[in-house]
């Protein structure tokens, strides 16, 4: 287990202990919920992991770095931001996918743009957002999120 994984699990154990001290019944309920969601999400995770494996195995590093690598320029950023806005996959999965892309030649900028657009912009959920919060709010929020996703990505590329 990596240091990060150790830290994460330690954090979870501490949270659990605090939860049990605060309210035993609620803590038990949380654990049952956790078990249910684990079983629920497991097939999805395996499906996505196999997809990522296929993708990484069949698409060469040269191709990935050509399309979304260090030197792919504005076109690469445009591609990932459109993919990120349209795709509707659980955000938990976006990180392993991003890590694989990064290891195989994608740039920090494209990965950061991908994560930000994927999580903040939802073409699929647009109708619901309009219904709940209005057309003007929805358009402004998604449009501005798209712009900051690209700015965040470019800055990330400069910092890291």
């Amino acid at each position: 287990m990596s240091n990060n994984a150790l830290f994460i699990n330690l954090l979870v154990v501490i949270c659990l202990i605090i939860a049990f001290i605060k309210d035993k019944e609620k803590a038990k309920k949380s654990l049952i919920k956790a078990g249910i969601s684990f079983v629920k999400i497991f097939p999805t995770i395996i499906i996505i992991i196999i997809f990522i494996g296929l993708f990484m195995g069949f698409i060469s590093q040269e191709m990935i770095s050509k399309i979304i690598g260090e030197n792919s320029g504005p076109f690469g950023i445009l591609i990932v931001s459109v993919f990120g806005s349209v795709l509707h996959i659980p955000s938990l999965i976006s990180f392993p996918l991003s890590a694989s892309l990064l290891r195989n030649g994608a740039s920090i900028t494209s990965v950061a743009v991908f994560i930000t657009t994927l999580t903040m912009i939802g073409i699929v959920t647009l109708p619901l957002e309009i219904k709940e919060l209005g057309k003007k709010f929805t358009i402004l929020r998604n449009l501005l999120s798209f712009i900051i996703a690209i700015i965040i990505g470019i800055l990330m590329g400069m910092i890291l």
Binding site: V12, C15, L16, S30, L31, K33, A34, G35, S37
Partner: peptide, 10 residues
């Protein structure tokens, strides 16, 4: 993953 699910449950 088990830890993440526990945190989400909490």
């Amino acid at each position: 993953l088990p830890g993440v699910m526990i945190l989400m449950g909490l």
